[in-house]
Amino acid sequence: MKPAPFEYIAPQSLAEALDVMDQYGYDAKLLAGGQSLIPVMNFRLAQPAVIVDLNGVSELARLSANGDGGLHIGAMVRHSQLEHSPTVAAKAPLVAETMPHVAHPQIRNRGTIGGSLAHADPAAELPAIMVALQARFRLQRMGGERWVHAVDFYQALFTTALEPEEILVEIVVPPLPAHTGYAFHEVARRHGDFAQAGAAALVTLDKRGVCREARLVYLNVGNIPVQTQEAAAALVGATPTPDLIKAAAQTAAQKEIDPAGDIHASADYKRHLAAVLGQRALQQAVTRAKESWAS
């Protein structure tokens, strides 16, 4: 058999899952969709002693738009649910638009938002999207919980703020300011493959077309999602013309990222992609923000 032996525990409630994690902590691995964990177990790159299967914990599979206007996403909500849910399309269209880029349909039927965010693959879409949307994550352990901002959750390559006995239980995506345009663009070798680089943009315009807020976040051009500062600041207070947008994306690509090359893309090529994708994402976000005033 491919994976090494392990003890299998399938809690039926969150309380039970927290209890098990409290008991086994470091020796245990949470099993969500298994779409990242099982491959590494099949190769025996991971040999956890205990597997705690979250698939029976229905409390974690909830998805709702609460009165506060935000979107509340349980950690076990599947990629395919995010892709097709009308609630997600209405409350967080950036998420809905990004989902078809996340792996293939069969993987999306199992993979979960919590698994993707906790796995922290630098090439994954959802971590960068959650940073762009300024989402907050609820981490729970037996007898306590804490909230962590997406941007603080990502610490290093495949490393997050999660402690061994903690479970990421919920993601809250706050509502966007009115008249905010959004966009996501990536380049992958084949549809559904991990991207070589990607960019998410959010731009808020006032009625004269002046930029009030801008966010530009990259994936796979560093060890964790990269939130640009200078590039985004260059747009705020200005009318984002195509030239200004191009210059901002150039700033991001030249100054704000430090990509490492891999077998699919050299560092130079990633910089090139960052400039192109940043420009496309910002441009589309601006266009959509303008359209929101017209309609």
Partner: peptide, 9 residues
Amino acid sequence: EPVRSCLMF
């Protein structure tokens, strides 16, 4: 729903 049987126990 279609899923990978190599990625489930």
